[in-house]
Structure formats: C-alpha cells, structure tokens
Nucleic acid binder design. Structure first.
Lengths: 239, 239
DNA sequence: CGATTTTTTGAACGTGCTCAATTACAGTGG
DNA sequence: CCACTGTAATTGAGCACGTTCAAAAAATCG
C-alpha cells in the first residue's frame, strides 16, 4: 500500500530495509474517504499525520469574505500533513478531490522515529522542505507569471509529480478539478480559467478536459512557462 | 550574539541549557556583509546554513524575462536557509537588505544535532515548517487579496515577526525596502505600490516612509487585511 | 554640491473580473 | 430510454484594478 510513498522517498535518497520497516511500523491505520470531503479541518488539534495512498488531496485556505486559495495539490505517495507533527495544528484545511485511500501515522510514532532513526528523520524533514519549495514556486508564479504561464507551470509541475509515482500515461494524467477549483489554485476566476484553457488548447500544447490533462508538447509547454524543475529536487543524494 | 535566535525558539518551545549549549557549539564562524549583496546564490552546493544575527535578508527568485519575486523576508534571529541542510542547494537566492551580521552553522554539525538531540531537531524542523506556513499565507495573499489588503497583511506579519525579537518601537519598525522591492514582495509594480501606499496613508492606519513602517491603528490594519496570525504559530508548546 | 536613486504623478492601455445568460453534461427517477 | 435536475463549461459585454511608459519632483549619497 505504501509503495508509492517509498518510491517518492527513494527518488531522492536511499531508504534502508530497516528504515522501510520503521515506516511500515509507523502506520497505525487505514481509511477511505469519498470525494469532496474535508478530511483535516483547519486549526484542529492533530495527533496523527495522513499519508495519501491513492487519489488526490488539496490544501486550502478561505478568506472570510468568500475567496478560497488552494495552496498545494497532493498526489498518491505524499504525506498531506507531515508538518502537523511539529505544528500540532494546521493553518489550512485538507479536502479530497476524488475518492481517497490514506494511511494514518500517529505523531508519537513519528517522534519515535526522530529518536531512533536520525537519517529517516532527515529524509522526512527534506520532504517538508520540498513542500516549502513548491510553495515558493507558487508564490513566484502568482506574483510574476500571467494567467497562461501560470497554468502552464502548474501542468508541468503536476506532470512531474505524477510521473514519479507512475500516474502519467504518455503525457496524460488525471487532475480531478473543476475549472472553478483550477481557478482557486491559480488565483483566477473560473471565467478566466475557461478562456485561458481555450488559448492553450488552440496553441496545441496542452488540453484540460473533464478532469484530465493531456500534454501534446512538453518542451513547448515548459518553454512557455519558463518552467525549471530544479525546485522539485529530483536528484538522488544522501540527506 | 544568538540571543534573538534563542528568543524566537523559546517563544514556541522550551530549550534546555544543554540544547542551548549545542546550538552555540554548532556556530562555527561569524561574518558581516554590506547592503544589497547576494550572500547565497541559487543552485549552489551548500555546506553550511546561515543564521541572521542582525539586519534583514530577502529570499528571491528571478524570471528569465525580467521579473523578480521576493518569497520571504528574514529578520534577526531567523535561519535564512536552515532548509539547505536537507536540500543541499537552494531553489532561490538570498540577499542582504542592509548591513547584516550572520553566524555560519556547518551542515555536519546540524547532522550531529539530528543524531544527538532529537527534541532540538524537532524544534528546528518546526521552524522550517513555520517558513512553509508563511509561504502558504503569501500564496493565499497573492491569489486572493487585492493590493491594499496584501500590503496591510505584509505590514501585520512583519510587525509580529519583529516584535518577537524586540525590534518594534510603539508600532514602528524598520523595513529597509524600496517601493520597487516592496513591489517584488507583493507582486505589484512600483507605481502601483506607490499609489497603494498613498491610500493607506490617507486612511491613517499605516505609513511607510524611507524604509520605516509606522502603524497608527493595528486593529484597523488587521481588520482591513482580514489578518489572522494563527499561521505564525505564536503559542509555546512541546514540539 | 552634483550625481544617482527613489518617489511621485499623469495618461493610456490591458489583463482579468463581474454580472448575467446560455449551452453542455452527468446523474436520477419515471 | 428519456425527461428532469443540478452542476459545470462557455460566451458576451462592461468595468476595474493594476500595468506600461514617460516625465517630474524629491530624497539620498558621495
């Protein structure tokens, strides 16, 4: 069940058999959720972290006056809230974007890992730092890129994240978002998302239809977004 | 020299005398830099992290086609790049916003801390997760708030961060940025920054002049930005 | 004091938003 | 199988926030 998670970790560093065993030991329970369900409310005291096994999750923050911003999209193999281990509560909520299976990892087992497995601790620390790097890229994107580039950048990012866990079939992958929600990721209205999607479609580089992205020309797409994957830290090295 | 750093840590959790000793041991060297100098270039292999003792630092990313986005502002007591310990290189650069004094902490000493001081490790892990929470708030702000709210939110955030290390004098603090750079933080042009500053000034809630922010009405300012400091995790509790 | 940077102002423009209506689509029950 | 319902996608028109370009005024620094 946690194979995708291990694949993600092993793409960045070696994980020993003993460490793998520790990870398996840390999982206390499994759970399934239906689509569009808030599985972690903001500000709530948490005693375990949630590891996504299949499906997709969104972290989001709401403005009292109506707006919603999605701050990260999680794919199978990601910890949705490993950071809740040190934060104890979250400044955002997490909801499912489709049916999801998750594994629950109690914080006291994570604490045990920090005591007994320093290297594994550093690897997990790395993964939260990777989330932060993705946040920075989104800050960059929202601040400096216009709608078209912004959307292209997102499609490139998801393409790589999903590739790592084997969920891309020749340039095509599931992204179970409505245009409204895509707008909540990109800081755009659904109307403008619709118009921007049409432009990209006409250019023939990428298409988004009924929750599925199809990239026709990766090079062109990356070029148009000035996409540089270095912030995804794809190289494997000792942490 | 590292008193401000300890103050910041101790605002969120207890740090024992032994842990304090470990932190002092971890500092290998001190350095000073002039204003407007890039002290950590992007993508470079790093073997130590930089702890800011005095002055202010900015993390930023450049777009090939010209734009620059500042992704975080660091104040005295912050580690500017503790995340480089696990990332090994950074996806952004760091520059001084005025004369700065820093302490250098070699990564191998941080590694030693992860082996010998699990609790201190969790505290440091927490601080990088706090950086990520600040990134999320910026993503939220750039995506959902308009210029005026966005600027108000930034002034509120810096007010709190600087308060924690005693650098606010009745609602007034140094923010050594030009309006151009403030625009690079907020995703706005310098022209619009100027006009937005005038609006805020006319409303009498806050003023920004020659690198210094003066807040006349904190409540009003927070209200106008829908500012909620929960993302700064100001409560002290065991990590 | 002169040189340079920063702030400020004006005017035209454009990207993206708002509001509102229409069309397409998916799921449901008869 | 089709009408019915609700959600999602699409289109249009007008508007506003923020940009661009350019110039002037003010502040800062040797």
């Amino acid at each position: 069940m946690i194979e995708r998670h291990l694949a993600k970790l092993r793409a960045r560093d070696d994980i020993s058999a003993e460490e793998e065993e520790a990870i398996r030991w840390a999982v206390a329970d499994y759970r399934e959720y239906p689509s569009r369900k808030t599985i972690i409310p903001a500000e709530q005291e948490l005693t375990f972290s949630t590891l996504l096994l299949s499906g997709m999750l969104a972290r989001f923050k709401d403005l009292r006056s109506g707006g919603r911003q999605i701050t990260e999209l999680h794919v199978a193999g990601d910890f949705a809230d490993l950071h809740s281990f040190t934060l104890k509560r979250l400044d955002h909520a997490v909801e499912t974007l489709g049916p999801c299976k998750v594994a629950l990892v109690p914080h006291d087992r994570l604490r045990e890992i920090t005591v007994r497995y320093p290297h594994l601790t550093r690897v997990y620390w790395f993964t939260t730092n990777l989330d932060a790097a993705i946040h920075r890229e989104w800050v960059f994107s929202l601040g400096q890129r216009r709608a078209q580039q912004r959307m292209a950048q997102l499609f490139c990012e998801m393409h790589i994240k999903l590739s790592l866990v084997g969920l891309v079939e020749n340039g095509s992958y599931d992204l179970p978002l409505t245009q409204e929600e895509l707008g909540q990721v990109l800081g755009l209205t659904s109307v403008h998302v619709n118009r921007t999607l049409q432009l990209l479609r006409e250019q023939g580089t990428v298409e988004f239809r009924s929750g599925r992205v199809t990239i026709f020309d990766v090079e062109q797409l990356r070029h148009s977004a000035e996409f540089d994957p270095s912030y995804l830290y794809l190289e494997k090295r000792p942490r």
